[in-house]
């Protein structure tokens, strides 16, 4: 036992005293004492073997303590972030409501100022949704559909904000086009997410989105008179070429992987 205690002391030498260090050292001493008793009870009477066996089970006491301290730090950091989020949110809402009331009372422009308030609320909700998406994406693919719904919601909230600014603040004609653009952005965001998250059927979503996306672009460009309605509609059938191109690229990529696979296997067999 003396040697084991020396091993603990040597391993932990130079670490400044603290409450957590004292707790950790006490726990290690207790654990190792119990283990030594267990092993001796099991039938080993060679002290060297007992010592070596226990040391092999506790090869890095110092490193373990370091990891424990890091973990505690991480936990504290997490707690601080959580508190910052809660208090930050409360302060954010207080500030925007006070700002809204102040601006409205000063300018008397109640017909327009509510848009600022609503846009800040939507921005907050969008940020919250994106934060949830980031969290869910780190988990199993089972949660990916939920993430995709949240992305769509976030995009729609931002679209609505843009629409309100265009319609209420700037009184832009054809501001309704923001919604068409919103749907286009939603499909693009979903396609990118499916690809980045290596969704199994990502290719089908790409194919499914291309033609409706072309129709949206046609409506936007046609409405803004960038292209004529006729023969601008040709954009829609032309999008089928992009569909075929996507399929072709995917097949090429798949075959490339396949040939790499065979190589790997044969190497493995040789070894």
């Amino acid at each position: 036992m003396k040697e084991l205690m020396k091993y603990i002391d040597d391993s932990l030498s130079g670490i400044p005293d603290s409450k957590s260090f004292y707790k950790y050292k006490k726990a290690i001493v207790d654990e190792i004492t119990d283990r030594a008793n267990e092993i001796t009870h099991a039938g080993i009477d060679d002290e060297n073997v007992v010592r070596d066996l226990i040391i092999s089970e506790y090869p890095d006491i110092r490193g373990e303590y370091g990891r424990l301290v890091d973990e505690e730090k991480k936990k504290r950091h997490k707690k601080q972030i959580r508190l910052a989020c809660i208090f930050g949110s409360i302060i954010y809402f207080l500030v925007i409501v006070i700002a809204f009331l102040a601006v409205s009372f000063v300018t008397g422009d109640w017909a327009h100022t509510w848009v600022y308030l609503v846009s800040f609320i939507f921005a907050y909700l969008s940020a919250a949704l994106i934060w949830i998406v980031v969290k869910l994406s780190r988990r199993q693919s089972l949660f990916h559909p939920v993430s995709r719904i949240f992305i769509a919601l976030a995009v729609m909230l931002l679209t609505l904000t843009v629409f309100l600014y265009l319609k209420v603040i700037f009184d832009v004609n054809k501001s309704w086009l923001a919604f068409i653009f919103g749907v286009l952005a939603m499909m693009s965001a979903d396609g990118i997410y499916a690809e980045k998250a290596s969704e199994r059927f990502a290719i089908f979503f790409h194919i499914l989105y291309i033609v409706p996306a072309a129709a949206m672009i046609y409506i936007i460009l046609g409405s803004l008179s960038v292209i004529p309605w006729h023969p601008g509609w040709l954009l829609i059938p032309a999008s089928l070429i992009i569909v075929l191109l996507v399929i072709f690229i995917r097949i090429l990529d798949h075959n490339k992987h396949k040939s790499q696979e065979i190589e790997e296997d044969s190497e493995w067999k040789d070894s």
């Binding site: 092993i39 099991a42 039938g43 080993i44 060679d46 073997v49 066996l53």
Partner: peptide, 10 residues
């Protein structure tokens, strides 16, 4: 053998 077996079991 006893010592070796105990170590293996541990």
């Amino acid at each position: 053998l006893k010592t070796v077996l105990v170590c293996a079991f541990e």
